[in-house]
Design a protein around this nucleic acid. Structure first.
Lengths: 113, 113
DNA sequence: TAAAAATATTATTATATTTGAATATATTTG
DNA sequence: CAAATATATTCAAATATAATAATATTTTTA
């Protein structure tokens, strides 16, 4: 299992709208930097910075093809992570049954109060 | 489905070692602030700040029980998200077959170069 | 080989996040 | 009701992250 540090690190790296967008596009295959320019409304250097960050953290990798740099997903968690984020949930988790949110309840632990 | 904004927001809120730890503990049930003090090596005000952040973003909620404040999970995505993060993967995703990482390959899109 | 194309790097500035310290509030108990 | 307990709030300082602007590097092509 990933260490806590590694798990947090992965979340931090993914927690940005540009990088999530990049990862979602990469789920459908290899893309080069200028492909990203087509749908990200940010500067090319900024795209490079985000790609570099993702790569440094082991989330993506690339190969060079002439003057194109082609990026692809490397960490297999990415599709699963994105799938969870897109999953629909009907309801909130129920408040603990013994102690409804609206009234005072008894704390379920072993303290006196 | 959650909006991109909402998905990023959730990741940002979870992407901190203290908050991940809090959420993992909450997966096993209700906890009050002083319970968190037992395993988080940070000050009580700092714990409150993290709890407040999680609550403001709809991830957790609480009920009061006397002078105890009992927190619980609210957003049903949390257990699924944490489960994915803990999942073990044997291998990295393969580099695109047509263009191995170590040699130059052909870009699979429809550009000239 | 010079120009064009694709991408990266660096430094700077702007902004957001995190922590720490001090203090405040609410509830219970003696 | 005063003290103790449990927790929250606020503000400031420290730190991290992000965007911008300017420029550099690499590869291809004319």
């Amino acid at each position: 299992m990933r260490s806590l540090h590694h798990r947090v690190d992965l979340l931090r790296v993914c927690a940005h709208h540009v990088r999530i967008h990049i990862l979602e596009e990469l789920c459908s295959g290899v893309k080069c930097v200028s492909d990203f320019e087509e749908f990200l409304q940010i500067s090319q250097p900024n795209i490079s910075q985000h790609l570099n960050l993702l790569r440094r953290h082991g989330v993506i990798d690339y190969y060079n093809d002439g003057r194109l740099r082609c990026y692809f997903l490397k960490d297999p968690i990415v599709p699963d992570l994105l799938a969870v984020l897109k999953k629909d949930y009907i309801e909130e988790l129920p408040a603990p049954a013994c102690c409804p949110v609206t009234k005072k309840g008894k704390y379920p632990g072993n303290r006196k109060h």
